[in-house]
């Protein structure tokens, strides 16, 4: 829990940001409600409770995926990790692509080897003003605090322990290298993930819900998208935890209705209701195998 104060500060930073930076999509989720009463200790705690899963509770393991494992997946990674959800993140592109001085000169890096820090330093050296202005340095600064380097989804070996990632945010719970939910940020990535899982052959025999949340690739949308993903993840986790509890020694007989049906079959429902809350981010879903 040593990370707590930092996280709280982080959330305070984040909360007002979207209101200022993104005029078109109103941030609708209930998550936002206590933002004004942040000053009071009690309120802050309540806020933290809502958005954070206590460590003694059941937790789904999440994986966020975008094209370059830089903006959208990392924003979501941060938000999920801040909620104490086990999270890993990937990109599905062939290379890490970041905007360069012109459209035709992107900055291109290799996955799995180039660290966020080295990218940050290189870009800062190249043109500090430009990359500060377009938010890249800020983004990279955030990323290097989350994990070491961008990872490629296709190179991920499910089930391979991730002990060497112990410094990453959201590592707790992902040590076995398995996930329950993959959240992609673009249909292209969704397709790439499904395809790659076919290629991987589902060797773990472990079901994984792949969910796409369409997010435009810019900082503002990533921030809003990150909140949407957090909203979705918390709901999913809530339902999964309910299943665990309902089916405990006493729960099975007493539970009824929705609680009676399990987590997996409720996922489409959850996505559908979530979609009504976030209509600007069209969702897709598939049960795949890792």
């Amino acid at each position: 829990m040593s990370t707590d104060p930092r996280l709280r500060a982080r959330q305070q930073q984040l909360a007002p940001a979207p209101a200022a930076a993104t005029p078109p999509p109103p941030p609708p989720p209930p998550v936002e409600a206590p933002a004004q009463s942040m000053g009071m200790d009690g309120a802050t705690d309540a806020h933290a409770d809502r958005n954070m899963v206590p460590d003694d509770k059941f937790k789904l393991k999440f994986c966020t995926v975008c094209a370059s494992n830089q903006n959208r997946s990392m924003e979501a990674h941060l938000q999920l990790a801040s909620a104490h959800l086990p999270t890993i993140s990937f990109g599905t592109g062939s290379l890490v692509r970041l905007p360069g001085p012109t459209v035709t000169q992107p900055n291109v890096y290799h996955f799995n080897s180039t660290t966020y820090r080295s990218i940050h330093d290189e870009l800062a050296q190249q043109n500090t003003a430009l990359y500060t202005h377009n938010g890249l340095l800020n983004m990279l600064g955030r990323n290097l605090a989350i994990k070491g380097f961008p990872e490629r989804f296709q190179d991920w070996v499910p089930g391979k322990p991730r002990l060497e990632h112990a410094e990453d945010k959201g590592w707790q719970g992902t040590e076995a290298g398995v996930v329950d939910v993959v959240i992609t940020c673009e249909e292209r990535c969704f397709d790439a993930v499904l395809e790659d899982l076919h290629n991987k052959g589902g060797k773990l025999n472990r079901p994984v819900h792949v969910i796409n949340v369409d997010i435009k690739d810019n900082h503002e949308e990533a921030l809003v998208g990150g909140k949407a993903i957090l909203d979705l993840a918390l709901t999913l986790n809530q339902v999964a935890a309910e299943e665990r509890e309902a089916h405990g020694e006493s729960g099975w007989e007493s539970g009824g209705g929705a609680a009676r049906s399990g987590f997996d079959e409720r996922v489409p429902d959850i996505i559908a209701t979530w979609q009504e809350r976030w209509p600007q981010m069209p969702a897709l879903w598939s049960l795949a195998w890792s």
């Binding site: 395809e195 290629n199 559908a272 979609q275 897709l284």
Partner: peptide, 26 residues
């Protein structure tokens, strides 16, 4: 056409597509 059915339908369609694309690419 409930929201859930919409999600399911889109998802099944997309999953089928991913499967077939994978077969063709292989």
């Amino acid at each position: 056409m409930s929201p859930k059915n919409k999600v399911i339908m889109k998802s099944i369609e997309r999953t089928t597509r991913a499967l077939l694309m994978n077969i063709m690419k292989r």
